[in-house]
Amino acid sequence: MARAHTPARKAAISAVAWTVALLIFFPILWTVLTSFKTEGQAVSTPPVFVFFDWTWENYATVQERSNYARHAMNSVVISVGSTLLALLIAVPAAWSMAFSPTKHTKNILMWMLSTKMMPAVGVLVPIYLLFRDWGLLDTLGGLVAVMALINLPIVVWMLYTYFKEIPGEILEAARMDGAGLSAEIIHVLAPMAVPGIASTMLLNVILAWNEAFWTLNLTAAKAAPLTAFIASYSSPEGLFWAKLSAASTMAILPILVLGWFSQKQLVRGLTFGAVK
């Protein structure tokens, strides 16, 4: 056979793959390592890799000086809040399009997708001015609304592709048995739809957590989530790499863990079901 999977071949491929994977992962690893150094060690040449005096000091300092917990809380409120709001709006829409499609369903889905293509800068000016006039600049409520709206098309689409996979016969059987609309949803649909809704939620939280156009432009000190808080480290005065690393590590680790669980949903959600 042409491709014999000899142990030698497997070892060689493993070695190459691990090397490449570690190189790609290195910037993250380096950030985590640096977060445990002193500021002096963080900028030292030659760099220290593992043999330095590990310290938690940066984590404490970041919290004390900049009120990290508040920005982390803002991130949680914005990402989870916008996801729940989007789900609330999207679940009924996706449900009816999946189970009672009309001749307009496809056009509506396509149109929703097209709204996602609108570049944010195209509406930055009016949204900024409206937010200013309505007193929504630098408020959590304003950002929750914007995030829910920009992710709504993805949420509808993802839910739609999941709901589509629920066999319609089950619904018909329930209807034949005389189940009303609400009974249909609670007893038949809900148990089968929960995994899809959970996946959608996961992906949407990740996307909202990392969104950095609207969060940077519409927040200041009060409602700034972690994306905007980290950006404040870009000021050129002084090098605080160890503290930057500590703040960054805290900002990315929770979402990295969530992300690792959501590989499949990621593919499906971001390709609008075109690749599964």
């Binding site: 790609i24 994306t227 900002a251 969530l258």
Partner: peptide, 9 residues
């Protein structure tokens, strides 16, 4: 992993 790192970080 890098996909989940926020752009500012």
């Amino acid at each position: 992993a890098p996909f989940f790192v926020m752009p500012t970080v």
